[in-house]
């Protein structure tokens, strides 16, 4: 039991963080008012005239806004799945390797891409998948027609998801590695005594033990369903893939800072935040109900 007298010290401990939060996160939030105004920079945000829900009405009229929300969800969802599945399988595969040195080396190396910035990785992707780049050279070596990877709206989302998974799978596998190491070795020993094969042990023991972890992670990532990755897409896209590649964040950036459609841009951004809050609440509730786990 924590004594009551601790409370005032707790408040003091919170001060630096709350001040930081108030000044740099909360204070600039008055900007969301722009969504309900016709923003005129000459007048400033406070004095600009109110327009009620006009910006939101316009947003719903635009085909573009539906499109970018759809694209965002599609890409983010695919990333979510990929970022669970690939690290999961990867961790299982690595778990089968008994050589410690090798395991360590592979682990260390696969963390590497996580530490690179998207500016760098996106530039590389464009090179490797270019029309005369290495991938197409391999394709033509196999007698296939070269493909315009970054010019094809059907392929683009796959590239976005693929490169994101590539960049993060090692890092995302960390949790699975540790879940695997926490499996009681006695279970394997018992199985070996019963004559279970390597494959059977994998199916019957390993996978069931880490499924709960995966399920929990899936729930937790729900809140990110509208975060499709600005840095990445901004550095990779072009007009011919707008139909599948333009996401909320890139759209807001263009509309707001380049075309001065502040009201509209803020309205779209605000909608995104609200949906995000709803989703986080859902995942909080789900995790608590079914796993008795509090996210925060």
């Amino acid at each position: 039991m924590i004594p009551k007298s601790f409370s005032k010290h707790f408040y003091i401990m919170l001060i630096p963080g709350l001040v930081w939060l108030a000044l740099f996160n909360l204070y600039p939030m008055y900007g969301v008012l722009t969504a309900f105004k016709e923003f005129n920079p000459g007048l400033g945000i406070w004095k600009s005239p109110w327009v009620g829900m006009e910006n939101f009405q316009y947003m719903f009229e635009l085909d573009d806004s539906k499109l970018v929300f759809r694209n965002t969800v599609v890409i983010a969802f695919a990333k979510m799945v990929g970022n669970l599945l690939v690290p999961f399988v990867f961790a299982l595969m690595l778990n089968e390797v008994k050589n410690r040195l090798l395991t360590r080396t592979v682990q260390t190396v696969v963390y590497l891409p996580h530490f690179l910035s998207w500016v760098i990785v996106a530039g590389m992707m464009l090179d490797i998948f270019s029309y005369s780049g290495p991938v197409n050279q391999v394709l033509s070596g196999l007698g296939l027609d070269p493909i315009m990877f970054f010019g094809n709206a059907h392929i683009f989302p796959a590239l976005v998801v693929g490169s994101d998974v590539w960049k993060e799978f090692g890092f995302n596998a960390i949790i699975f590695f540790s879940a695997l190491t926490s499996i009681n070795p006695e279970m394997y020993e018992a199985a070996a005594v019963d004559g279970a094969s390597q494959w059977q042990r994998l199916i019957k023991i390993t996978i069931p033990s880490i499924i709960p972890v995966a399920a929990l992670l899936a729930t937790l990532s729900l809140g990110n369903i509208l975060n499709a990755g600005f840095d990445q897409i901004f550095n990779m896209y072009n007009p011919s893939v707008y139909s599948t590649g333009d996401i909320v964040d890139t759209w807001v950036y263009r509309a707001g800072l380049i075309d001065f459609q502040y009201g509209l841009a803020t309205a779209v951004g605000l909608l995104k935040s609200v949906v995000g809050l709803v989703l986080i609440t859902i995942s909080y509730t789900l995790a608590y109900r079914f796993a008795n786990y509090r996210i925060f």
Binding site: G123, S130, Y131, M148, F150, G151, N238
Partner: peptide, 8 residues
């Protein structure tokens, strides 16, 4: 150019 619009 096959890479029109995409070429860096």
């Amino acid at each position: 150019d096959k890479e029109l619009g995409i070429r860096k």
